[in-house]
């Protein structure tokens, strides 16, 4: 099976879906030139009409995507960085997720907002935040944050074929990561987790880059004789509650690892759900490992210190044992 980078897998998903369905198009700033490698080369194949460069106008571009979606097209709106979604908040929170419901099911909004999300390039607060947790709070918006090239491709293709608004977050820190990506077409279902490692002592739930943090922690725990089960949620909304609860039923311990600021983080939602629905299974209080509660700092040393580390995860697991 060929090994490809995470961004190459995303580019492949975009190209395949654009070839398959003429209603699919890409719109955003500098998508022609492909300022991010995930969109490079698409303009050469698909031309001006289907790879549309826009002014730097996140609100209008997001809304234009919605307008195109409700009139029969399937836009992929590339807004570059997760933090730029904040500039388009009205269109996402008030319109995209609500339109179908608000208008009594008269329309559907088949639309993908695609952004890079999270830390990893030492770019400071405005280009380094993970933003997925905000959109988990919005009804009827799907949110995906894959951790591998394989998942990235399969989930992006599903997102493009989905008839609902989807926020597809690809992790800035994982862009160069390589993994096996089949040459034959495949799709992955949105909302289904992937158990990365089986274990019976503790359940560690993660998403995107924190999956690797959790796996690294699991290796260290193994040297202590502790077997951790590591779950990669892959989708944040909807999220695979059942896989998590089944795992906790087996392990009795739960640690949520998430690159969000702590309050109302994705980890908060997972932890609350486990505490609410799996309390009888728990042998210890649930634990959260998140970013430090400060804006993202610039210096690589400080940025690293803000993010969840494998040592933080190991410490959290230890807390469930005392």
């Amino acid at each position: 099976m060929p090994r490809k980078t995470y961004v190459a897998a995303i580019q492949e998903a975009l190209a395949e879906e654009m070839r398959r369905d003429e209603r699919v198009f890409l719109i955003g700033e500098d998508v022609r030139i492909g300022v991010f490698p995930s969109t490079r080369g698409l303009h050469a194949e698909f031309g001006d009409r289907r790879v549309i460069d826009t002014p730097i106008s996140e609100l209008a571009v997001a809304g234009a995507g919605i307008g195109a979606a409700v009139t029969g097209l399937r836009p992929i709106v590339d807004l570059m960085f997760g933090t730029f979604l904040y500039l388009a908040f009205d269109q996402i929170a008030n319109q995209a997720g609500a339109m179908r419901y608000m208008y009594g099911g008269q329309t559907k909004v088949p639309l993908v907002f695609m952004v890079q999300s999270g830390a990893g390039s030492s770019a400071g607060h405005h280009h380094s935040q993970a933003v997925h947790q905000f959109f988990m709070n919005m009804p009827q918006i799907k949110v995906i944050l894959p951790s591998t090239p394989y998942d990235g491709k399969g989930l992006l293709k599903s997102a493009i074929r989905d008839d609902n608004p989807v926020i597809f977050l690809h992790s800035l820190s994982l862009g160069g990561k390589r993994g096996e990506v089949p040459s034959d077409e495949y799709l992955l279902p949105i909302g289904v987790a992937d158990v990365k490692r089986s274990g019976s002592d503790v359940t560690i739930c993660a998403v995107g880059p924190t999956v690797y943090t959790a796996l690294e922690a699991a290796e260290k725990l193994a040297t202590e004789g502790l077997e951790a089960e590591v779950i990669d949620l892959r989708s944040l909304s909807p999220w695979d509650k059942r896989t998590v609860l089944e795992s906790v039923a087996k392990t009795g311990r739960f640690v949520a690892v998430d690159e969000s600021f702590p309050t109302c983080s994705a980890a908060s939602e997972w932890a609350a759900t486990v505490a609410e629905e799996a309390f009888p299974d728990l042998k210890a209080p649930v634990q959260r490992v998140t970013n430090a509660d400060v804006p993202m700092p610039f210096s690589p040393v400080l940025e690293k210190a803000v993010l969840p580390s494998a040592a933080d995860v190991v410490a959290a697991v230890h807390r469930t044992l005392t």
């Binding site: 234009a64 307008g67 979606a69 097209l73 008030n94 319109q95």
Partner: peptide, 18 residues
């Protein structure tokens, strides 16, 4: 939302052009 429909109208125009 005041002004909220304006980008969506642009999208409907985009769709016609497309």
């Amino acid at each position: 939302i005041v002004g909220g429909g304006m980008p969506i109208a642009v999208g409907a125009g985009l769709s016609a052009w497309y």
